Amino acid sequence: MGVTRRYRGESEKLLVPLLNLFTMETLKIAFVYDVVYPWVKGGVERRIYELAKRLARDHEVHVYGYKHWEGKNEIERDGIHYHGLAPAPKRLYLLGKRNPLPMLRLASRLRRRIGEFRWYDIVDVQNLFYPGALALKSLPSTVITWHEFWGPYWWRYLGPGGLPGWLSERALFTAEHHISVSWKTKHDLLRAGLRKPVPVVPNGVDVEFIQAIPPDELESDVIFVGRLISEKGVDFLLKALVKVKEELPDVRAVIVGGGPERKRLERMAKGLGLEKNVLFTGFLPYKRVIALMKASKVFVLPSLREGFGMVALEAMACGLPVVTLNAPMNAARFLVEDGKNGFVVDESQLSDTLASLLFDKAFLKLIGRVSREISAEYDWDAVVRLLLDVYV
């Protein structure tokens, strides 16, 4: 089942009065977020880039955010028009949390240019850039793309300081048009009281690109890829590896990514006696990340919170089983068909699951083939067709 067929029932038409359904003339589309790919390599940024470069083949596409580049404020790259509204902050994170002050400054720049956005057929603003989404939500052409809905989690994340985030989410409910990247987030929105259509347009994967990349020379048994923040749960992986090491003394794990937790996790690995078993690579070019996945055996995503889990799709396209946590806010668990392309486990089951997979080479080969088949359903070209269907 292709992604378009899988989600066809969800593709309620958002903007019929604005567009000509029958001629499908060139659309003028703006994507709005704070950070911009490829200068920052997160899941939301990656989604915007993959959609934008494909839409730019037939439509006029603009991306608004921080100015991460040198030179002019507005540049063109891969057919996409980039608008740098404010200099990129030196520190995206403050005390391990996203720094809200630069986002507020960026949103003030958006408000000054509100008239500019009235000329777009579609203004696709990402909910996680809350100040920007609030600034643009009243435009008739605005679509709020929801990557996550936190609800009560705001209080756990920031304590009493979570009130502005909680209120911001509720305020976005007044926008007319919404998209969710996952069924989980859609369910959370409807349960929280949003009473408007919320079609699901998932993230995707570039299957053809991934297939063309050969495995890296650096082989491993287990690989993790992601930003090193507490919500990613790398602690759980390290603790599980201690037990796996009892059965497989030479077990090799590669942890790809950087972030505020890196030094603490490196100290933790050393304290657990894993310094010879675990390699922290830091951030790497995308091709190298894919090559390292292809040179590994099992992908582990021990996240407590994932809005979608695009990296899990990429691992599946590399032929890896995905082991992820059965955590309430982990949407990646819905990408895994338990026992077919991976396993959804509790923290206490992580070590046994990894050991069982690593000992069963025949099963690894079988589950890898199923992973590739499932990932092919999420090819970015199919996702773009679904997105256009939703837009018009």
Rank of each mutant, 00 (worst) to 15 (best):
M1R: 06
Y7L: 06
V16E: 07
P17I: 06
F22C: 12
T23Q: 11
T26V: 06
A30C: 06
Y33N: 15
D34G: 12
V36N: 01
V36H: 00
V36P: 06
P38Y: 06
V40K: 09
V40A: 04
K41C: 03
V44Y: 13
V44W: 10
R46S: 11
R54A: 10
E60T: 14
H62I: 09
G65I: 09
H68E: 13
E70R: 12
G71L: 14
K72M: 14
H81I: 15
H81W: 09
Y82W: 13
L85H: 11
L95H: 02
L101V: 15
P102W: 05
P102E: 05
L110K: 01
L128A: 11
L128V: 14
Y130K: 13
P131S: 07
L134T: 00
T142R: 01
T145R: 06
T145G: 02
H147L: 11
E148I: 15
W150P: 00
G151I: 15
G151C: 15
P152Q: 07
R156W: 08
L158K: 15
L158V: 13
L167F: 12
F173N: 10
A175G: 10
H177P: 05
I179T: 07
V181F: 13
K184S: 08
T185Q: 05
H187E: 14
D188C: 04
L190I: 14
A192S: 14
P197A: 09
V198I: 11
P202F: 00
A212N: 10
I213M: 06
D216I: 09
L218N: 03
E219K: 12
D221M: 11
I223P: 00
I229F: 03
I229T: 13
I229W: 01
V234P: 00
L238W: 04
K239F: 15
A240E: 04
L248K: 14
P249Q: 11
P249V: 11
P249E: 05
D250M: 04
V256N: 03
G258Q: 01
G259Q: 04
P260T: 06
L265P: 02
L265C: 09
E266D: 05
A269D: 01
G271D: 08
L272K: 05
F283V: 12
A291M: 07
A291C: 08
K294W: 00
K297P: 02
F299N: 02
F299Q: 08
L301Q: 13
L301G: 11
L301T: 09
L301I: 14
R305K: 05
F308M: 12
L313C: 13
C318R: 04
C318H: 00
G319L: 09
A331G: 08
A332Y: 07
R333T: 03
E337L: 13
N341V: 06
F343Q: 03
V344M: 05
D346P: 00
D346A: 02
D346L: 05
S348R: 15
S351R: 02
T353S: 07
L354S: 01
L357P: 07
K361N: 08
F363I: 03
L364S: 07
I367T: 07
G368W: 07
G368R: 04
G368D: 01
V370M: 09
E373K: 12
S375G: 07
A376N: 02
D379N: 12
W380S: 13
V383T: 07
L386K: 03
L388K: 05
D389P: 03
